[in-house]
Design a protein around this nucleic acid. Structure first.
Lengths: 273, 273
DNA sequence: TAATCTAACAACGA
DNA sequence: CTCGTTGTTAGATT
């Protein structure tokens, strides 16, 4: 579930908290989420010092001073929880990272998370992350840039925005409101959007994601300290509000299938063409 | 149009006729069918001596002793015609290759042909041809081999057989009869075929293609000497015979859309499952 | 009638 | 709610 606002928040917290922390031990209970043997991973990360934590799209990257990196994908949702003292940590986790000072963090995946180790040298070729585009939180994500990547493509706008090679960090959850706010149907073809619609879409992306971030991100997700954000389901414009009234026109909100994802839309405000 | 029987015939003729012939000049009237500038092509092929002519799938490859190769694709159909004396050749062509002894051959594409030059070194990486599979005329195309490449795939059988990465040389024209003879619907899933059906399909592929080859290949196509083959439309079992009676059950033959191609079928003899 | 590449799209699995 | 792979289709190519 975690999308850009949640990823940005927890990454900032991890970076502030964990810089210079020294790894003591890593416990991996779910081997399938990593890319090398558990032994190799432990060996490459042993006594490593955290240089910084940053994100690329929805991936959290922990860079170590020894030239290694941990690439963390939360998949369909995961808790990443910090404990000042490892003894206080829950035993419900797939991965636990313990530091020399006895602090630790645990990762509990809901579904399909990743915990990969990649050297600095391999990082630029790493297939999961190498093609991820910049996010709407980046300075470079200007309106001109956005208009440029849309090109004259014939793709459906929602499929395009969900593709991390085009825009990093947007998932299905915030998509509903972004498209609703721009009054664009998820299956509208990009090359049929007007200049005004594109401008409005750009503004909507920034507005929706920034509003959540500024409220501490989504309320169902826990941050690094186990706290929940203040952006609540009530704050959604139409997302996850099937059959409730559209806030603009009072028509009932519909849940439709759009390719492999579902979309909440107001089919009166958001016309296909 | 040219498929394996036509390609095999003309390639044999070219190989027999052109071995040791020395290039004098190449005239390219359609630049888009080649991969380098006309000047570079002329330069690399000038005075080159033909070592042999062979085929890979539907591609005809002319190998020169100087380490260059011409890769010839007939696309949707083309005449490749030999003239003992260049003065006798027609001026309807996109490409003409003239030899030192004043013999020549012309190529007249119907639609989308290719005339590429590739060095021996680059040949194994050449993207159009590197992944083409062996053809049913190869000794290695045994029943065991054929059963092996089918694997447990979920693809439609016709799409699979048309894909040159799986089997080289089969096109849409002979496909109709191959599938009809095996009593298999073009959209049958491979993993739902019985062992008997696969055996029958293998036999049908060899029977149909060999029968055409043995009759001098398709009658609408001209060979290297301008002669037409003796495998006629009347020899087709059901191909291109819409509304005529199925030779087995007398039901009318239907023309249906199957993906991007059309298929003549007897929907009584060829059931989807 | 015919060939192939590509982008977009859908279905499935992990 | 993810992301990747595979298969399918429509469009374009000169």
């Amino acid at each position: 579930m975690a999308e850009l606002p949640e990823i940005a928040k927890i990454t900032h917290q991890m970076n502030d908290e964990l810089r210079s922390r020294v790894i003591d031990e890593v416990i991996i209970l779910q081997e399938k989420c990593t890319n090398v043997s558990v032994e190799e991973l432990k060996c490459r990360i042993k006594k490593a010092v955290i240089e910084k934590v940053y994100y690329k799209g929805k991936w959290i990257i922990i860079a170590f001073t020894n030239g290694e990196n941990i690439l963390l994908s939360l998949g369909m949702g995961a808790d990443v929880l910090y404990y000042l003292d490892e003894k206080d940590s829950s035993d419900k986790f797939q991965i636990k990272v313990i530091f020399k000072d006895n602090s630790c963090f645990t990762i509990r995946y809901w579904w399909f998370g990743k915990f990969l180790i990649v050297s600095d040298k391999e990082l630029c070729d790493e297939k999961n992350t190498k093609d991820i585009a910049i996010t709407p939180f980046d300075k470079e994500f200007t309106y001109e840039y956005f208009k440029g990547i849309l090109g004259g493509k014939k793709t459906q706008i929602k499929a395009f925005l969900l593709d991390q090679k085009n825009v990093g960090g947007i998932g299905n959850m915030y998509m509903h409101d972004i498209l609703f706010m721009a009054k664009i149907h998820p299956q509208s073809k990009i090359n049929e959007l007007t200049e005004e619609e594109i401008k409005c879409l750009y503004d909507s992306i920034l507005y929706i994601l920034n509003t959540s971030f500024n409220k501490g991100s989504f309320n169902y997700e826990m941050d690094f300290y186990g706290q929940k954000g203040n952006y609540k389901v009530e704050d959604f414009l139409i997302g996850y509000k099937e059959n409730q009234d559209c806030p603009i026109c009072q028509n009932p909100i519909k849940l439709i299938k759009t390719g492999s994802t579902s979309s909440f839309i107001c089919d009166s405000c958001q016309k296909k063409d």
